[in-house]
Amino acid sequence: MKELNQEEWRAQLEKDDNAVILDVRTEEEVDEGYIPNAKNIDIYKAQEFMEEIEKLPKDKSYYIYCRSGKRSAQACMMMDQMGFDETYNLAGGFMEWQGEKTS
């Protein structure tokens, strides 16, 4: 897992052709807005979260965020343990996100 600030995350994401954005927040949080093209997998739904993560290709780069950066850091660590090589946590999470948003 690599911890990236807003600028690093956005810059790296823009030039990564192998990128997948994961939003690990709850459905209610996602309803308040999200980063475009993000796939939502709620980390609080532990069993469902693990099942969905296991379906993901391990050769992609995963840019992961939550509300504040704590749950996404946890998701990154779990994915690293499952054999994912490229996981990037958005420091500060969606609360501090200054980039494009969809509501």
Rank of each mutant, 00 (worst) to 15 (best):
S68T: 13
S68L: 03
W97N: 06
A91T: 07
K58F: 02
M82E: 01
W9K: 00
M82V: 02
Y88G: 08
Y63E: 08
W97T: 03
V30P: 03
Q74Y: 12
T87N: 12
G99F: 03
A38D: 08
L13A: 06
S103T: 13
Q81F: 08
C66Q: 05
M78P: 04
V30D: 05
E29Y: 05
R25T: 11
E29L: 05
A46Y: 13
R10Q: 15
G93P: 04
Y65D: 08
Q47P: 00
D23T: 12
Q74N: 15
Q6I: 03
T26C: 09
E8D: 09
M1R: 00
E29F: 04
D59S: 09
A46L: 13
E14K: 15
E86K: 15
T102E: 15
L22E: 10
D59V: 10
E8I: 01
G69D: 09
Q12S: 12
Y63C: 09
S68V: 06
Q81P: 02
S68I: 08
D80C: 02
L90R: 01
R10Y: 11
K58H: 08
D16S: 13
M79S: 06
G93L: 06
E86T: 07
Q12R: 13
E28C: 03
Y63R: 07
E3H: 05
S68N: 04
D31H: 11
M1N: 04
D80Y: 00
D16R: 10
E100Q: 11
A75V: 07
K58G: 07
E51M: 08
N5F: 03
T87P: 04
T87A: 02
E14F: 01
K15C: 05
G33V: 09
E51D: 10
A75T: 11
G69I: 03
L90S: 09
L13H: 04
K15H: 04
E3V: 00
R67W: 14
Y44C: 00
T87W: 02
R10N: 13
Q81A: 14
K70V: 14
G33F: 06
